[in-house]
C-alpha cells in the first residue's frame, strides 16, 4: 500500500517540478491542496473535508493533503494561519463562533481580522439533547426543572467559550434559567457523559442527534425551520425563544494569497456544495449546507462581528 502511494508520489515529484515552474501566481497550483484541520480527526470538520475531497478531485484533478493542527479549541492553528505559504496551495478550516470569541480575551494569538475567509459551506445548528430515557421530555419540562432548582441541572458541552457554551448561555438568558455548564474535550466525551447519566443534558449540534438516533432525544433545534432529519423536533422559535444559530464552518487562506486564487477557491467550494450527492450526504448527517462566497463574505463577517460582540459581553469575555 505504501509502495503504491510512493510510486505515485515519485511520479508526482517529476510532474510537480515541471508544473511548479510553469504555474503563475494567479491560479491554484497544480498539485494536492494542503488542507489544515484545526480539530481532531474524526470530528465534524474532518468528516466534512473527507466528504469534500472526492468532489474536489473530480472538479480539479487533485486531492487534499489533510493535516491536523489541534489545540486551544482551534486557536493554535489560527494563530499560525498567516505564516503559511500564500501561493494558494494551503488553506485552513475555520469555525464560528470560535474566530469571533477567542480573540476577545486578547490572548488567543490572533485577531478575527487575521482570518481571511474564502468560503463558508455549512452550519451545524445548536441542539439541546437529553438521553432517550431521561425524565425530561420537552423543552418546557427542561425549563421548569431548571427553575425549580436553579443550577442543579448539569449540561455537558465541548470547551469553554465555544459554540456549545454560547448556546447554553444564550438559551439560559433568554429562558431566564440557570444551569451548570460542564466543559469536556470533544463531542465523544460529552456523549459518553450524557449516555452514562453523568450529566442531565447536552448542548451540541443536530449532527449528534443523527449519530445517536434512538439513544438520545433532541428537545429543540436552533433553526428557522425544522431539520429534515428531525421533523418532530420543534425549533426554539416555535417555543418562544428566539435562537437561530450554530457553528459555521468554512475555509480561509493566509493573508497575501492573490485575489484570483481566492475567487477560484471560492468558486470550487461553491461547486462542491452544489453537488447533489454531496449535499444529500451533508443533510443526512444533520448538517445544513450554507453558501457564503467571496461576494457575500465582507458583509457577513461585519454582521457577525457585531452580533458576537454582544454575546462576548454575555459570556463575560468583554467588560
Amino acid at each position: 500500500m505504501m509502495t503504491h502511494r510512493l510510486g505515485r508520489a515519485v511520479a508526482a515529484l517529476f510532474a510537480f517540478t515541471l508544473a511548479g515552474t510553469a504555474a503563475s501566481a494567479q491560479t491554484l497550483p497544480a498539485r494536492d491542496l494542503t488542507y489544515i484541520i484545526p480539530f481532531n480527526p474524526g470530528g465534524e470538520s474532518d468528516v466534512t473535508a473527507r466528504l469534500q475531497e472526492p468532489v474536489y478531485r473530480r472538479l480539479t484533478g487533485h486531492g487534499f493533503v489533510i493535516q491536523y493542527k489541534t489545540g486551544g479549541g482551534g486557536a493554535a492553528a489560527w494563530a499560525q494561519l498567516n505564516g503559511l505559504p500564500t501561493d494558494g496551495g494551503t488553506m485552513m478550516g475555520f469555525n464560528t463562533p470560535h474566530i469571533f470569541l477567542q480573540p476577545m480575551s486578547g490572548k488567543a494569538g490572533y485577531r478575527t481580522a487575521d482570518i481571511n475567509p474564502v468560503y463558508i459551506f455549512q452550519l451545524t445548528p445548536h441542539a439541546l439533547i437529553v438521553a432517550a430515557d431521561s425524565p425530561i421530555k420537552s423543552i418546557e419540562e427542561y425549563v421548569a426543572a431548571a427553575k425549580a432548582k436553579p443550577g442543579a441541572i448539569t449540561v455537558a458541552g465541548t470547551g469553554t467559550h465555544s459554540a456549545n457554551h454560547v448556546a447554553q448561555q444564550s438559551f439560559d438568558q433568554a429562558a431566564g434559567i440557570r444551569t451548570t455548564y460542564v466543559p469536556f474535550t470533544g463531542t465523544g466525551a460529552t456523549v459518553t457523559a450524557l449516555l452514562g447519566k453523568q450529566v442531565a443534558a447536552l448542548w451540541n449540534f443536530t449532527t449528534v442527534g443523527v449519530e445517536q438516533k434512538g439513544k438520545v432525544r433532541v428537545l429543540a433545534v436552533a433553526m428557522e425551520q425544522r431539520h429534515p432529519q428531525f421533523p418532530d423536533v420543534p425549533t426554539f422559535r416555535e417555543k418562544g425563544v428566539d435562537m437561530v444559530d450554530g457553528a459555521m464552518r468554512g475555509v480561509a487562506v493566509p493573508a497575501g494569497t492573490p485575489d484570483p486564487v481566492r475567487r477560484q477557491l471560492s468558486e470550487t467550494f461553491r461547486q462542491i456544495n452544489a453537488d447533489p450527492a454531496f449535499r444529500q450526504k451533508m443533510i443526512d448527517g444533520g448538517y445544513v449546507p450554507l453558501d457564503v462566497g467571496q461576494d457575500k463574505l465582507p458583509a457577513f463577517m461585519a454582521e457577525h462581528t457585531r452580533r458576537y460582540a454582544e454575546i462576548g459581553k454575555l459570556l463575560g469575555l468583554v467588560k
Binding site: M2, R5, L6, A9, V10, A12, D32, T34
Partner: peptide, 11 residues
Amino acid sequence: YLVFEWGLGVP
C-alpha cells in the same frame, strides 16, 4: 525526506 514528504504527505 522522500518517505515523509511524498509517502506520508507531510509538507
